[in-house]
Write a protein that binds this DNA or RNA. Structure first.
Lengths: 332, 332
DNA sequence: TTGAAAGCGCTAACAA
DNA sequence: TTGTTAGCGCTTTCAA
């Protein structure tokens, strides 16, 4: 069924579209009876104006940035969103957030929808999809919509701007910290496959400790909990390097359930430094990512590219990740 | 400076707008040289098509729901968003998320922007603003855009649909649990002012324990930490009823820093049951809110109202909050 | 107080 | 292969 338009309302009410428009815009040039009649028809027809048609096409609109994250349900992204939003506001931009929930087709869809909503720029934490540089990014380029990636794609041929952190280095530092503390039986709880961050972090762990055992856990509390319970059953180890803090916290919980003490029996390092990490009963040693700063910089770059007339060259920013030693690790 | 249009490009390139349109839509009817010239002009003019004009006005578009939360940086909202998104997807709706970050003017602005982006329905967790039913909600009604509130406003005169939980009851249960465990020196760490949930929870605490001391903490880890450190200094108490889990976790950390043990010295109850609550060193006793379910129901109602032709009556759903007893509370 | 008509930026059909 | 033109749903003059 066709969407009702101002014409339908006008016809049904026996007035012209001009009158309906006047009612819509609360102009006081309409006789009360007429207004009432029109309003009633609007209601009965379930009429909703097409907003795009209201503002004269091409008239100045609110500037907006789109932000597509992989999973909204992760404190890591919450910080990135907040950072991006802060920077956006500074420049009078609004931020529209969508989540792909780790599904590639939804990421493509989200980008399409945001473009349809006429965003001026896009920040995206893309899913790692092997093969071609996906067409949704090409669309962005074709439409002259600047976009910034948070977490660069590996085969990243494109000209896209990227804001990222040195994962390899961070994971290397974390592992070295454990090695220097005398740990020899190391297990690495790796993140999701198809995550660029995960493979970079695994690489960092292996560079420091080529013999480390790698176990694929995931990215959530439950993943960490399950990995230790199932995959590490009966396995001997004294230290865990985790993909992120959530996995670390989940792992820690499982260890406690098994009667093991952290850090007495097992040392644990996380990654991200989410807020809660320092509030835990055993404050978590972790690799801090400047999450807000990442969001902020990504937004700043997007906005800069929107404003600049000349074909702004893409920028690549690699922020440092810093090891924060707390209480979940100790000398062996 | 006026936004560049297809006309500008056509003129500059010395072709008709039809040709430019063909290039824009990747039609292969354009000679290579022409295409190249047009593309170059587009680039140099920094031309970006007005998306709203591309899809023939009024043509069927993706259905979208807007969601405005108070603070994106809170696991509680993350769950609501996920629930809403799941339900939305089921009905082939997209979800656009914005955050007011506890600032009323931003909430108003967010609603305006979402309406301008032509959303079909709205879910909102409104800030508690005393006085009139704000005009941004009236606008929604005038434009026939169904909206659902998560957390009802107190003086809620409007016809809006609401999905909420029984906060009073949840807080009452939590407090009774402590009372029955023999606690007499109770402190309530209350949430932010101007939060409906906060005042309802405080009411529940007071109904169970009229003599409870009320301290205004806030909603974050830091707020809980600071409240115990500053406002409870030298104060004697054996149990804490907290506005939410974050405050509880922050409070717990501060108690530990003071050498106090939970639950041996102090029992603590949180609210929300965020994921991490059960993974803590001392798993948190808390009042579980069906967060995803709230998001899901809110989306379901919004979508139902969008589809229904007749003037659907507003719905009010009050979900139960359930006390989950873990290890942070014990008999005195 | 209401109606008629031009025009917003673009696409699509058709003509050249 | 390119140009011309009608219209998408609405607002905004201007005329009646």
């Amino acid at each position: 069924m066709r969407r009702k338009t101002i014409k339908d309302v006008a016809q049904e009410a026996g007035v012209s579209i001009g009158t309906v428009s006047a009612v819509l815009n609360r102009r006081d040039s309409v006789r009360l009876v007429t207004r009432k009649r029109v309003l009633k028809i609007m209601d009965s027809l379930n009429y909703r104006p097409v907003e795009a048609a209201r503002r004269r096409l091409g008239s100045p609109r609110e500037k907006t940035l789109g932000l597509v994250v992989k999973e909204i349900h992760n404190p890591y992204f919450a910080d990135i969103i907040v950072g991006a939003q802060e920077e956006a506001r500074k420049h009078d931009f609004r931020l529209l957030v969508m989540s792909s929930e780790q599904v590639f087709s939804r990421e493509v869809d989200a980008v399409r929808v945001l473009v349809a909503k006429d965003i001026d720029g896009l920040i995206i934490n893309p899913l790692l999809e092997l093969g071609t540089l996906s067409s949704h990014f090409q669309d962005l380029e074709a439409n002259n919509i600047p976009f910034v990636m948070i977490e660069g794609l590996s085969g990243d041929v494109s000209t896209a701007s990227v804001v990222d952190i040195d994962n390899e280095r961070g994971a290397f530092d974390a592992t070295m910290h454990l090695l220097e503390a005398g740990h020899t039986e190391l297990v690495h709880l790796a993140g999701p496959k198809y995550s660029q961050h995960s493979s970079e972090r695994s690489a960092g762990v292996l560079r420091a400790a080529p013999g480390a055992r790698i176990v694929h856990a995931g990215a959530t509390l439950e993943d960490g909990f399950n990995a230790v319970r199932d995959q590490l059953k009966g396995c001997s180890f004294t230290a865990l390097v985790c993909y992120n803090d959530l996995v670390a916290i989940g792992a820690m919980r499982q260890l406690m359930d098994q009667g093991l003490l952290v850090p007495k029996d097992v040392s644990i390092v996380g990654f991200d430094d989410i807020d809660v990490a320092s509030y835990l009963g055993v404050p978590l040693t972790t690799v801090r990512i400047p999450k807000r700063e990442m969001g902020r910089q990504a937004a700043a770059i997007a906005i800069e590219q929107i404003h600049s007339t000349e074909d702004s060259k893409s920028r690549r920013i690699l922020l440092d990740a810093e090891l924060i030693v707390r209480s979940s690790t100790r000398k062996r």
